[in-house]
Design a protein around this nucleic acid. Structure first.
Lengths: 192, 192
DNA sequence: GGTTCGCTAGAACGAACGCTCTATCCAGGA
DNA sequence: TCCTGGATAGAGCGTTCGTTCTAGCGAACC
């Protein structure tokens, strides 16, 4: 069955994405991935002949989509861009807390570990960040903020969310995310 | 000689700190550390009987001091807190570029890799972030910003710097840091 | 001069790493 | 009915991992 084969591939990608998110690239073994995905080592190398790097790049792309969806959900929940960003921080805080402070940004750890040493992965990382910035930029622009300002603000919004998520994870507290939401809202307000 | 022994210990800590910064915790082996530090495996385990975790925790504390010094240098370079923060982003951008985009925040990668799984390291990480926030907070407060505002702003300044450094490293560009400097300055200006 | 002790030195251990390879399974076409 | 080829299965390769352990070094004290 076609569904079975694509099912295995997808199970592998999802398991990899979750493991990279929680343990990073070097801390995650291919055998652990195959175990968690309920697939065999043979299947992993069948679908990803490029090995661990190719698999990780695909997992990053998966995390990209996941995070993008969260962003869109948050941004669509309010017309005012400042409130919309606050909604994003709330969604992030909820997800982080509900996972026992385990599930931060799905790609940051892997990105930092592989920067400058695994071009295939890095490319996926760069695309993910650009993708997220574009989503925020569009929201800001359609809310009446000029193109240049919207682009610059979007970059800072994403970067700040990343930093806040890291802080929240380390502190095991939602506070850094909520605080960041308020400060970003205040910054955005200065542009209107 | 006393100087020789403390010399070896310090060489090990410095080498570990630099390697953790560039390769992360899981990507750095103890044998590589002993090689780069020009110390033997026996020496490493003599000074750090707690093994890799104890060594990493000590290296994090070293990175803490290093980053704190950079922050103080930047903050002291201008009376106006907004300009002072911009000076920090400039220092960070210089250091990052000059290292070939290798030397980002000395502790972030290790922090993310070990969060929730290595309490000894995590404790050092939490202390480092608190330390950095305190430095920024003091600058903001002595510049006339209220205590609560200063504390909250300081947290956001540190978190945002972290996020911007990550973005700059991934993009191999100083822009995210400079942009963040401008936005943080703008945010700080709304409090005066 | 002998003894102690902080430190250096690196061989060796079991476990885990990424990856290769052969064998087998089984649905669909000839 | 046989054949083909995508998918599954996992033993085994060489290497490296973190750690342990014993042996030896040289300066300092009695």
């Amino acid at each position: 069955m076609k569904t079975t084969t694509t099912g295995t591939r997808e199970r592998i990608v999802r398991a990899t994405s979750r493991l990279l998110q929680r343990q990073g690239y070097e801390g995650t073994g291919i055998k652990q991935i195959s175990r968690e995905a309920e697939a065999t080592l043979g299947s992993v190398y069948h679908f990803f002949p490029g090995g661990k790097q190719e698999l990780a790049a695909e997992a990053i792309r998966h995390g990209d989509q996941e995070f993008a969806e969260l962003l869109r959900t948050g941004l669509d929940s309010a017309a005012d861009p400042a409130e919309a960003v606050i909604a994003c921080t709330r969604l992030l805080a909820d997800a982080l807390r509900d996972s026992g402070w385990q599930d931060g940004c799905p790609i940051t750890t892997t990105a930092l570990e592989t920067v400058g040493r695994a071009p295939v992965i890095e490319e996926a990382v760069v695309e993910a960040f650009a993708h997220w910035r574009a989503i925020v930029e569009e929201k800001l622009h359609t809310s009446g903020i000029g193109l240049t300002d919207a682009r610059e603000l979007a970059a800072t919004v994403i970067n700040t969310l990343e930093g806040a998520e890291l802080a929240a994870q380390v502190a095991r507290s939602e506070d850094p995310l909520h605080l960041t939401g308020r400060h970003l809202a205040r910054l955005i307000a200065t542009y209107r």
